[in-house]
Amino acid sequence: MDTRWKPSVTVAAVIERDGRFLLVEEHTSEGLRLNNPAGHLDPGESPIEGCVRETLEETACAFTPTHLVGVYLSRVRRPGDDFTYLRFAFCGTVGAPDPQRALDTGIVRTLWMTIDEIRASRERHRSPLLLRCIEDYLAGTRHPLDLVTTDASVYA
Protein backbone atom coordinates (compact mmCIF):
# COMPACT_ATOMS: atom_id res chain seq x y z
CA MET A 1 0.00 0.00 0.00
CA ASP A 2 1.31 3.48 -0.91
CA THR A 3 -0.65 5.36 1.74
CA ARG A 4 1.45 6.99 4.44
CA TRP A 5 0.44 6.20 8.01
CA LYS A 6 -0.52 9.38 9.90
CA PRO A 7 -1.56 9.21 13.54
CA SER A 8 -3.98 11.84 14.80
CA VAL A 9 -2.30 14.24 17.24
CA THR A 10 -4.34 14.99 20.32
CA VAL A 11 -3.80 16.96 23.51
CA ALA A 12 -5.22 16.37 26.97
CA ALA A 13 -5.28 18.16 30.32
CA VAL A 14 -4.81 16.48 33.67
CA ILE A 15 -6.23 18.86 36.26
CA GLU A 16 -6.32 17.95 39.95
CA ARG A 17 -7.79 20.02 42.75
CA ASP A 18 -8.28 18.83 46.33
CA GLY A 19 -7.92 15.17 45.35
CA ARG A 20 -10.40 15.36 42.46
CA PHE A 21 -9.79 15.45 38.73
CA LEU A 22 -11.64 17.59 36.20
CA LEU A 23 -13.28 15.42 33.53
CA VAL A 24 -15.85 15.96 30.83
CA GLU A 25 -18.84 13.82 30.01
CA GLU A 26 -19.42 13.77 26.28
CA HIS A 27 -21.60 12.24 23.59
CA THR A 28 -19.73 9.71 21.43
CA SER A 29 -20.75 7.11 18.87
CA GLU A 30 -20.64 4.64 21.78
CA GLY A 31 -22.86 6.70 24.09
CA LEU A 32 -21.99 9.02 26.97
CA ARG A 33 -18.31 8.71 27.88
CA LEU A 34 -15.87 10.31 30.31
CA ASN A 35 -12.62 11.90 29.19
CA ASN A 36 -9.94 14.32 30.22
CA PRO A 37 -10.52 17.71 28.62
CA ALA A 38 -8.94 16.76 25.29
CA GLY A 39 -9.10 17.11 21.55
CA HIS A 40 -7.26 17.30 18.28
CA LEU A 41 -4.35 19.62 17.63
CA ASP A 42 -5.32 22.28 15.09
CA PRO A 43 -3.08 23.56 12.30
CA GLY A 44 -0.94 26.51 13.34
CA GLU A 45 -0.82 25.80 17.06
CA SER A 46 1.63 24.16 19.42
CA PRO A 47 0.58 21.20 21.59
CA ILE A 48 0.52 23.52 24.61
CA GLU A 49 -1.68 26.06 22.79
CA GLY A 50 -3.95 23.25 21.61
CA CYS A 51 -4.37 21.94 25.15
CA VAL A 52 -5.19 25.42 26.48
CA ARG A 53 -7.77 25.89 23.69
CA GLU A 54 -9.38 22.46 24.07
CA THR A 55 -9.65 22.80 27.84
CA LEU A 56 -11.34 26.18 27.49
CA GLU A 57 -13.73 24.89 24.83
CA GLU A 58 -14.70 21.77 26.78
CA THR A 59 -14.79 23.14 30.35
CA ALA A 60 -15.21 26.94 30.00
CA CYS A 61 -12.15 27.21 32.27
CA ALA A 62 -8.85 28.89 31.41
CA PHE A 63 -6.07 26.28 31.69
CA THR A 64 -2.50 27.09 32.68
CA PRO A 65 -0.17 24.17 31.87
CA THR A 66 2.71 23.62 34.27
CA HIS A 67 4.26 20.35 33.04
CA LEU A 68 4.12 17.67 30.37
CA VAL A 69 2.91 14.44 31.95
CA GLY A 70 3.68 12.27 28.95
CA VAL A 71 3.36 11.43 25.29
CA TYR A 72 1.17 8.42 24.54
CA LEU A 73 0.50 6.32 21.44
CA SER A 74 -2.74 4.34 21.28
CA ARG A 75 -4.81 2.56 18.68
CA VAL A 76 -8.58 2.16 18.49
CA ARG A 77 -9.99 -0.59 16.31
CA ARG A 78 -13.66 -1.30 15.88
CA PRO A 79 -15.72 -2.41 12.88
CA GLY A 80 -15.03 0.04 10.06
CA ASP A 81 -12.53 2.13 12.07
CA ASP A 82 -8.81 1.91 12.77
CA PHE A 83 -7.33 5.04 14.33
CA THR A 84 -3.96 5.69 15.95
CA TYR A 85 -3.62 8.63 18.32
CA LEU A 86 -0.51 10.43 19.53
CA ARG A 87 -1.51 12.21 22.75
CA PHE A 88 0.38 14.96 24.55
CA ALA A 89 -0.91 15.16 28.13
CA PHE A 90 -0.21 18.27 30.21
CA CYS A 91 -0.99 18.96 33.83
CA GLY A 92 -1.76 22.35 35.27
CA THR A 93 -4.39 24.50 36.89
CA VAL A 94 -7.71 26.04 35.87
CA GLY A 95 -9.61 29.10 36.95
CA ALA A 96 -13.32 29.26 37.62
CA PRO A 97 -15.61 28.45 34.69
CA ASP A 98 -16.81 31.39 32.62
CA PRO A 99 -20.63 31.33 33.04
CA GLN A 100 -21.04 33.17 29.72
CA ARG A 101 -19.17 30.51 27.76
CA ALA A 102 -21.03 27.50 26.32
CA LEU A 103 -19.37 24.09 26.41
CA ASP A 104 -18.16 22.63 23.13
CA THR A 105 -20.60 20.65 20.97
CA GLY A 106 -21.04 17.16 22.37
CA ILE A 107 -19.90 18.02 25.90
CA VAL A 108 -22.76 17.37 28.33
CA ARG A 109 -21.07 18.57 31.52
CA THR A 110 -17.88 18.83 33.50
CA LEU A 111 -17.35 16.94 36.72
CA TRP A 112 -14.73 16.53 39.43
CA MET A 113 -14.02 12.89 40.32
CA THR A 114 -11.71 11.16 42.78
CA ILE A 115 -9.20 8.62 41.51
CA ASP A 116 -11.30 5.84 43.06
CA GLU A 117 -14.40 7.05 41.19
CA ILE A 118 -12.41 7.23 37.95
CA ARG A 119 -11.01 3.72 38.43
CA ALA A 120 -14.52 2.41 39.19
CA SER A 121 -15.95 3.91 35.98
CA ARG A 122 -13.54 2.34 33.44
CA GLU A 123 -16.41 1.05 31.29
CA ARG A 124 -17.41 4.68 30.68
CA HIS A 125 -13.94 5.95 29.70
CA ARG A 126 -13.64 7.21 26.15
CA SER A 127 -10.05 5.98 26.06
CA PRO A 128 -7.79 3.91 28.30
CA LEU A 129 -5.47 6.93 28.18
CA LEU A 130 -7.82 8.85 30.51
CA LEU A 131 -6.79 6.70 33.46
CA ARG A 132 -3.22 6.11 32.28
CA CYS A 133 -2.47 9.86 32.16
CA ILE A 134 -3.94 10.38 35.63
CA GLU A 135 -2.06 7.37 37.04
CA ASP A 136 1.20 8.75 35.60
CA TYR A 137 0.42 12.14 37.11
CA LEU A 138 -0.26 10.54 40.51
CA ALA A 139 3.05 8.66 40.22
CA GLY A 140 4.76 12.05 40.00
CA THR A 141 5.62 11.97 36.32
CA ARG A 142 6.39 15.55 35.26
CA HIS A 143 8.52 16.91 32.44
CA PRO A 144 9.36 20.55 31.74
CA LEU A 145 7.12 22.24 29.17
CA ASP A 146 10.15 23.10 27.03
CA LEU A 147 10.56 19.40 26.28
CA VAL A 148 7.96 20.04 23.54
CA THR A 149 9.36 22.37 20.92
CA THR A 150 7.27 23.98 18.22
CA ASP A 151 9.23 25.33 15.28
CA ALA A 152 8.31 28.79 13.96
CA SER A 153 7.34 27.18 10.63
CA VAL A 154 4.15 25.91 12.31
CA TYR A 155 2.92 29.49 12.58
CA ALA A 156 3.89 30.58 9.06
Results as ranks from 00 to 15, higher is better:
T28L: 02
L147A: 13
T64H: 07
T28W: 01
L103K: 02
V108F: 12
D81V: 14
D146L: 04
Q100N: 13
Q100Y: 03
A38G: 06
D136G: 00
R126M: 07
L68S: 01
E57I: 04
G19A: 01
G44W: 04
G39S: 14
L68F: 03
L129T: 13
R78T: 04
G44P: 03
A120V: 15
P99R: 10
G19Y: 03
G140V: 00
D82H: 06
E49C: 05
G106N: 06
R75A: 13
T59K: 02
R109H: 09
L41I: 00
L32K: 09
P43V: 10
C61D: 05
L56M: 07
A120G: 15
E135H: 02
T141H: 04
V9T: 13
P7K: 04
Y155K: 10
E57F: 02
V69M: 03
L129N: 13
V148K: 01
W5M: 15
L34Y: 11
R4P: 14
S29Q: 11
L138V: 08
E58Y: 05
T55R: 01
E117Q: 15
M113Y: 05
G70V: 11
L22T: 15
V52D: 00
G80P: 00
C91V: 12
G50K: 00
I115T: 09
R101I: 12
L34R: 09
L23K: 08
D2E: 14
A139M: 13
T141F: 02
H125I: 05
D82W: 07
D81M: 14
P144Q: 05
S127F: 01
E117M: 11
S74K: 02
C61F: 02
I107Y: 03
A60N: 01
H125T: 09
C133N: 07
T110P: 04
R142G: 01
S74N: 03
T28N: 09
E26D: 02
R101D: 07
D98I: 11
A12T: 00
G95L: 08
T150L: 07
Y72E: 14
Q100H: 13
V71C: 06
H125P: 11
I115A: 14
V52I: 08
D2A: 07
P99V: 10
W112D: 13
V76S: 15
S29V: 14
G70F: 06
T55K: 05
K6E: 14
R33S: 00
T149S: 12
S46C: 12
T28G: 05
S8N: 04
C133D: 08
E123L: 06
P65K: 11
V148A: 14
R77V: 08
R126Q: 08
T55D: 00
T149Y: 14
R4A: 13
T149N: 12
E57R: 06
Y155G: 07
R122W: 03
S29P: 13
L32V: 08
H27P: 01
T28Q: 10
W112L: 13
L23P: 11
D151R: 15
D146R: 07
T3D: 15
P97V: 03
D136N: 06
A13Y: 05
P7R: 08
C133G: 02
R17H: 14
P97G: 05
S8L: 11
L130W: 00
N36I: 01
